[in-house]
Computed example of a mutant assay.
Amino acid sequence: MDAQSIKVACSNCNLRELCLPMGLNSAEMSKLDDVISTRRRVKRGAALFSTGERFTSLYAVRSGFFKTCVTTADGRDQVTGFQMTGEIIGLDGIVSDHHSCDAIALEDAEVCVMPFDQVEELSREFTTLQHHVHKIMSREIVRDHSVMLLLGSMRADERLAAFLLNLVQRLHARGFSQSELILRMTREEIGSYLGMKLETVSRTFSKFVEDGIIDVKQRYVHIKSTEGLKEIVNSQNCR
C-alpha cells in the first residue's frame, strides 16, 4: 500500500454529493476538510484493511473498486460485498473497534481517509453530518437484508439478474452508462457473493446471452434488455 498522504479538500471534490451530505455551509465544510485531509492509494490485490486490524477510520472510495470478504471456518474466502467510487468502507469496525473483514482492491484504487473519532465528534456538532452517518449505516443494513433475500429465496438466474441490475444502477448514479459495464470482479467472486458455484454463474451468464438479454465479452457486459432482467427478478413474485 502506498502510504503517501495527499492533501484533499472535500469542498472541491466532484464525488461530494455521493459520499458526503449536502447542506453543509462553508465553515462546516472547512472543518470537514481539515478532518478528511489525506488519501491513500491501494494497489490491485492489496488490502486496505484486514480482519482483526484495529479500527480507526472509515474510507470513502475516490477511485477504483473493492471487495470485502471474510474467511469461513473451513478456510474459504466468502465475499460479503463490492464497493465502488463514492461508497464508504470500514463500518464493520465500529462495533468492536476491530475490523471483521478484509477489504481488497480489485483494481488500483484511492480512498479518502476519514478518522472515525473526529468524524463522530464533528457529527455531534453538525446534525446534517450526523444524519448522513446514520443514513450510511442504515444503507448497509438494508443492503445486508437484500443479500439475505437473494440467498434465501431466489433461484440462480434471479440472483444474477438482481446483481447485474443493482451494479448498473449504482454505476449509473455515478454518471456511467445504464446498459454497459466492466465487471471488476471475477465470475468466482460473483459466485462467492451470490452463493453460487462458478459453473452455475458461467451457465447463467450463457443463458442470458442465449435469451438475448445481455452480451458478454470477457468482463465487458452489455445489457440489451433491462426489462428482461427485471422480469427474471420479479418472476419470484408470480410463483
Rank of each mutant, 00 (worst) to 15 (best):
Val233Gly: 06
Asp157Leu: 02
Gln236Cys: 04
Cys19Pro: 02
Arg39Leu: 10
Met1Pro: 12
Ser100Met: 07
Ala173His: 01
Arg203Leu: 11
Glu199Arg: 14
Leu20Pro: 00
Val111Thr: 01
Met1Arg: 07
Thr200Ser: 15
Phe82Ser: 06
Thr226Leu: 11
Gly93His: 11
Arg41Ser: 04
Val79Cys: 03
Leu48Asn: 03
Arg39Ile: 02
Cys19Ser: 09
Asn14Met: 04
Glu140His: 12
Glu227Leu: 08
Met29Phe: 03
Phe55Asp: 05
Ser57Arg: 00
Glu231Val: 06
Asp117Ser: 15
Ser100Tyr: 01
Asp102Phe: 14
Ser11Tyr: 04
Met22Ile: 09
Thr51Arg: 06
Ser235Arg: 04
Arg54Thr: 02
Ala161Tyr: 10
Lys67Tyr: 01
Ser177Leu: 05
Arg124Ser: 10
Glu28Cys: 10
Val35Asn: 03
Met185Tyr: 06
Arg76Asp: 07
Ala47Gln: 01
Val133Arg: 00
Arg143Met: 06
Asp144Asn: 11
Thr56Leu: 13
Ile88Leu: 02
Ser225Thr: 12
Ala161Glu: 13
His98Met: 10
Glu210His: 09
Glu17Met: 11
Asp211Gln: 14
His222Gln: 12
Glu121Phe: 05
Gln236Asp: 11
Asp97Lys: 02
Ala105Glu: 01
Leu15Glu: 01
Gln178Met: 11
Leu91Cys: 11
Ala173Gln: 04
